[in-house]
Simulated scan of single mutants.
Amino acid sequence: MVKNIDWDKTLKHNQSINLGQVPQDFQDAARWVRSSRIGYAVETEVKVYRIHIQDFLQTAKPETVDNDRGISATVRNKKIVVTEERIRKVLKLRDNAQDPISLSKDDVLDGFRGMGYAGDFSKKKR
């Protein structure tokens, strides 16, 4: 039996998880996520204030500087620029711009099989 993992359901996104406290049935997946490029990003708790999000959304606009595309905004009277490279650095993703941003269905299924999942992947569950 799998236990429910509690989280603040009012937020619905952008929440970190302590991969050391996942149910036993998910320890292999947690170990894999922890050692993957996204491990730091998934486990690191960052406080983001609603007023900062509102400021960002009200002032955000696309910007290109030296062929580097990003989003420029003013948050609490401070100009910020969010770029792919900045996100990679802050979240310690250990990747680069040449890495693929999407995988084929076969690559995804091979990944699941490599983690030990078995079964008929051709059927959709409803």
Results as ranks from 00 to 15, higher is better:
residue 2 V to R: 09
residue 105 K to S: 08
residue 120 D to E: 11
residue 49 Y to F: 13
residue 16 S to R: 06
residue 39 G to F: 02
residue 78 K to Q: 02
residue 54 Q to L: 07
residue 107 D to V: 06
residue 115 M to K: 04
residue 53 I to E: 15
residue 102 S to L: 12
residue 20 G to A: 03
residue 107 D to F: 11
residue 124 K to M: 01
residue 44 T to W: 04
residue 17 I to V: 14
residue 9 K to A: 06
residue 34 R to Q: 08
residue 96 N to W: 03
residue 114 G to D: 01
residue 124 K to C: 00
residue 111 G to D: 00
residue 49 Y to E: 15
residue 21 Q to H: 10
residue 16 S to T: 05
residue 113 R to G: 00
residue 110 D to K: 14
residue 74 T to M: 08
residue 27 Q to T: 09
residue 80 I to V: 15
residue 57 L to M: 11
residue 8 D to C: 09
residue 10 T to Q: 03
residue 56 F to Q: 10
residue 71 I to H: 05
residue 114 G to Y: 13
residue 111 G to T: 06
residue 89 K to P: 04
residue 59 T to D: 00
residue 122 S to W: 00
residue 67 N to M: 12
residue 45 E to V: 00
residue 104 S to C: 06
residue 10 T to I: 00
residue 30 A to H: 08
residue 103 L to C: 12
residue 76 R to L: 12
residue 47 K to Y: 02
residue 54 Q to H: 10
residue 62 P to R: 15
residue 14 N to T: 06
residue 76 R to N: 13
residue 15 Q to F: 06
residue 35 S to R: 09
residue 9 K to I: 06
residue 119 G to V: 12
residue 58 Q to Y: 13
residue 70 G to T: 08
residue 72 S to Y: 04
residue 90 V to E: 15
residue 78 K to D: 03
residue 88 R to I: 09
residue 77 N to W: 11
residue 121 F to R: 01
residue 86 R to T: 00
residue 67 N to T: 07
residue 42 V to F: 08
residue 31 R to A: 15
residue 44 T to Y: 06
residue 114 G to P: 03
residue 113 R to E: 02
residue 72 S to I: 10
residue 70 G to E: 10
residue 68 D to H: 08
residue 20 G to L: 01
residue 66 D to E: 06
residue 33 V to L: 13
residue 20 G to H: 08
